[in-house]
Design a protein around this nucleic acid. Structure first.
Lengths: 223, 223
DNA sequence: TAATCCCTTGTGGTTTAACACAAGGAGTTT
DNA sequence: AAACTCCTTGTGTTAAACCACAAGGGATTA
């Protein structure tokens, strides 16, 4: 398995751990980037020099440093990279285990593998690389699979997400209505917002809107 | 710097990264534990065999696996370890940067150092080890310091935390009052709970109770 | 075209939460 | 002891949220 691999991971401890492990199991050429912007540049340089990367292993969350970055998280990085080099394989290696997020990465970001950091994260990462590169099929680690299979993932659309986000920011229902009217978002009556919230409370089994927002937060549905 | 070090860290990628780095910078004897229970046993065995560990580097959050564990997080581990071996040095190495939690670790858990995982986490960890072992003074990494200095950390007591936790669990204010009456927690009138919430909204600059609970969540004040 | 369904919105009434005012208790200061 | 402060609690009012009922619009179907 000879490949050229880029690791995008901000935490130096994780970064070093991944590299140490990969060096034992592959003879791949391994580069690392602690910032998304740097990762993007390296991918594009690889293309220019006709030595493209075959695999990107990327984290999702990157520390917001003092410098301003164009690309601030793994999702954006994946978008940019897939656009520049559609055939590249991407494995996400993150501690994130919220079902909504993992699902969205496969469905909307066309990633090739997902591995949750954890007890056996590195072992799973090796498996994922094998599966994705050798067999050209996608890979989901057991932990992520379990998260995905946990009690039917509740789908909520961006309209509903927005309501919950505004609630979380301290908007009252009347203010949400006003906000929707100003921003031409429909439906925008106070009454309709009430209705959505009732529906959401039902779906998520929340007794109050406070509990609803807390649950949505835990599931990674808002911000 | 010859020491015997134990690393308690569940994620194998981090674990390997820390070990790789330490081996470059020290000739210390390094052991690792991926579970708190195992860490406790190793510490106690070290004492029994008269070869005690000098330093524990511990994460805070540990994955809840399928096995049941007696000790489920770093805080509990620290308590147990300090009780068994009061003179041991403890450095927490975690991505946690919520001020309330870091502050509490120094004040209530007597840790000797705190380093946030991040861009330069390992470098900081080396510095922390140096400072704690050689100079016998505590160390807080810059990221954690910044977190601690961010707009005066708001202190809230366990009574207030409980109100927020119950709100987050879907209790209404009247129900919280009932809960307090049943459990002999004072004050327990609906009116008093109202008052505390107003005070908390003021302190945290929250417009609604929903925003209040979200903020408390972000600061690590509730669960 | 009429019948049907789904979604939005309005109305009015009930519950819950927010707030101003004030009485009473406990502890402190003068 | 009187004056004081701080906290708790009650009362009554207003605002916000919740909910049942129903009218109307748009799309689909018979």
């Amino acid at each position: 398995m000879v490949t050229k691999v880029l690791i995008a991971e901000d935490e130096d401890s994780d970064n070093l751990g991944i590299v140490s492990k990969l060096q034992k199991f592959t003879n791949a050429h391994i580069d690392t980037a602690q910032f998304c912007d740097k990762a993007e540049i390296m991918i594009k340089r690889g293309l220019q020099e006709n030595l493209p990367y075959h695999l990107l292993i990327s984290d999702l969350s990157f520390i917001k440093g003092h410098k301003k970055h164009k690309i601030i998280d793994g999702k954006q990085l994946i978008n940019v990279v897939k656009q520049a080099q559609p055939e590249i394989k991407i494995i996400v290696f993150s501690q994130e285990n919220k079902p909504a997020i993992i699902k969205s990465l496969f469905e909307n970001y066309n990633i090739n593998g997902y591995v949750c950091k954890g007890l056996y994260g590195l072992q799973e990462l090796i498996k994922a690389i094998d599966t994705v590169i050798k067999n050209d099929i996608s890979y989901t680690c057991p932990v992520a699979k379990e998260a995905l299979h946990q009690n039917n993932i509740l789908q909520i659309n961006s309209y509903e997400v927005l309501i919950l986000q505004l609630l979380a920011k301290g908007y009252k229902q009347e203010e949400i209505s006003q906000h929707f009217i100003i921003n031409s978002i429909l439906p925008n009556s106070k009454r309709s917002i009430e209705d959505r919230l009732r529906k959401l409370r039902d779906e998520f089994n929340a007794k109050t809107n406070i509990e609803l927002v807390v649950i949505a937060n835990k599931l990674g549905l808002i911000s």
